[in-house]
């Protein structure tokens, strides 16, 4: 079964559907959370919260508003970003930077896990963006920075960062095309 169908069954309290859904989405959820949060223990913690939240709030999924996978990964990303930001706010930045030293950056991480077509494709498309588009998109999405922080880090006006993010995403869409 597909995620959309499963999520609707999960919303009805179906445990078996949840186990099947877990099989489909735990990898993407965990990978995304780990990419953003980095710290392995915290990543597991956040991924667990997200997967449990899927069970709890499946009732709120509305298929009119987008696919189940999009809903699930948006939720996972939101929680991961919240965790990274509160860690930063709590002055754990140094600790995070220390983790960063242990965990290789984007390019190496992608090599270490099994290479998929989608992964290659996304990377190729990211490479095709302008430097500022790519940095605006990846600093926000993979590192969890707000667009104000991105603007500061790149020494760009806020308006420029917003535009770069939008252009970057739109160009990714064109590049990725219909490969779903």
């Amino acid at each position: 079964m597909e995620a959309d169908e499963l999520l609707l069954l999960v919303a009805g309290g179906n445990h078996q559907a949840f186990e099947e859904l877990y099989g489909l989405v735990s990898g993407p959820v965990f990978g995304l959370v780990r990419r953003v949060v980095r710290d392995p223990a915290q990543s597991e913690e956040v991924a667990q919260e997200v997967l449990l939240e899927l069970w709890r709030s499946a009732t709120k999924f509305d298929p009119d508003r987008g696919s189940a996978l999009s809903w699930i990964l948006t939720l996972a990303h939101r929680r991961a970003v919240d965790r990274v930001r509160s860690a930063r706010a709590a002055g754990e930045r140094e600790q995070r930077e220390a983790w960063r030293a242990h965990f290789p950056a984007f390019d190496q991480v992608t090599e270490e896990v099994e290479a998929g077509l989608e992964r290659e494709w996304v990377r190729r498309c990211l490479d095709r963006l302008t430097e500022l588009q790519r940095q605006s998109v990846t600093l926000a999405y993979y590192e969890g920075y707000t667009y104000r922080e991105v603007a500061e880090r790149l020494s760009l006006p806020l308006g420029t960062v917003k535009t770069r993010m939008r252009d970057g995403l739109t160009r990714m869409r064109e590049c990725l095309g219909g490969v779903a």
Partner: peptide
């Protein structure tokens, strides 16, 4: 939906 495509490229076994 575009942003979610970025997520797919990070999938890793849980």
């Amino acid at each position: 939906e575009d942003a979610v495509r970025l997520a797919w490229s990070t999938a890793a076994p849980a």
